[in-house]
């Protein structure tokens, strides 16, 4: 665990060494909430009925969607991006030459990006609350396991993309595809029940659909975790199933890369 923590710490120190960049980035996040506030307020009368069951305020609905999507994006892209950058600079070769097990390296490389995305999401949420978003504060603890499951359901997609990077030096279309489906069919900007019939079936295979619904029900409706147990089981299923597939894919890619000599090549 301390090796993962060391990688996360190094990532944090490197990112925050660009001090002005960090300040401007967080400033932009907070400012970005302002137009969302006004647009959602204008749409509130027409959307109130549509979002019923997942909160009563369209502003809070959208903010939850956007913040969770930020975390999902980090879970999808952190690993393949880290491997691609690391292969170019040679850091991956140096990391792989240490006695640290590969899964630990992966957890450390993805860990920082995911935690940083969570911090950014937290800042946006806080800014939204200051601007009047209705959230149930005492439900934050209950949201943590849901968010963890959302991350665990998406990390394997990143692992599969990382396997592609190791073997073929390209992420492939999978993370982009999942991100796009999550954005448009995962309930980020509107509830999935408003999506037309045939396409709505696709949203059923998007993990974010279940994650967002569960988070909104708990955080915006104030209901207990038992109220979203079905969604949690679906997320768990995605996480376990995809984890098995991604582990097999990554091991195969590692063997192939060692055989082909492409492990630390770009």
């Amino acid at each position: 665990m301390y090796k993962v923590a060391a990688l996360i710490r190094a990532g944090w120190l490197a990112a925050t060494s660009y001090r002005l960049g960090v300040i401007m980035s967080f400033g932009a996040l907070i400012l970005g909430v302002v137009p969302v506030f006004f647009v959602t307020r204008a749409l509130q009368p027409s959307m109130a009925g549509v979002i019923a069951g997942e909160g009563d305020q369209f502003f809070a609905f959208i903010i939850i969607g956007m913040t969770v999507l930020t975390v999902v994006s980090a879970a999808l892209y952190a690993l393949p991006n880290a491997l691609q950058t690391g292969a170019t600079t040679g850091t991956i070769e140096a990391l792989l030459a240490t006695p640290t097990p590969v899964p630990t390296l992966l957890a450390g490389l993805a860990g920082y990006e995911v935690l940083y995305a969570m911090l950014r999401a937290g800042v946006v949420l806080l800014a939204a609350v200051v601007m009047g978003a209705h959230v149930t504060w005492d439900r934050f603890g209950a949201v943590a396991p849901i968010l963890l499951l959302v991350i665990l359901a998406h990390i394997p997609i990143g692992i599969i993309a990382a396997a592609m990077v190791l073997a073929f030096r390209t992420q492939g279309p999978l993370p982009q595809l999942v991100f796009m489906l999550s954005t448009f069919l995962g309930g980020v900007y509107y509830p999935t029940h408003v999506i037309p019939g045939a396409i709505q079936m696709i949203s059923a295979i998007v993990p974010l659909t279940y994650g967002l619904r569960a988070i909104r029900v708990v955080l915006l409706e104030g209901k207990p975790l038992t109220a979203v147990s079905g969604d949690l089981f679906m997320l768990l299923g995605f996480a376990v199933g995809l984890f098995v597939v991604s582990t097999i894919a990554f091991q195969a890619a590692l063997r192939y890369a060692r055989r082909a000599g492409t492990l630390a090549q770009y």
Partner: peptide, 16 residues
């Protein structure tokens, strides 16, 4: 973007 010491601390951890 890390100091020499921080680079070393990272790899010290990775080496156990």
């Amino acid at each position: 973007r890390l100091s020499a010491r921080e680079n070393m601390r990272l790899y010290a951890a990775l080496n156990g």
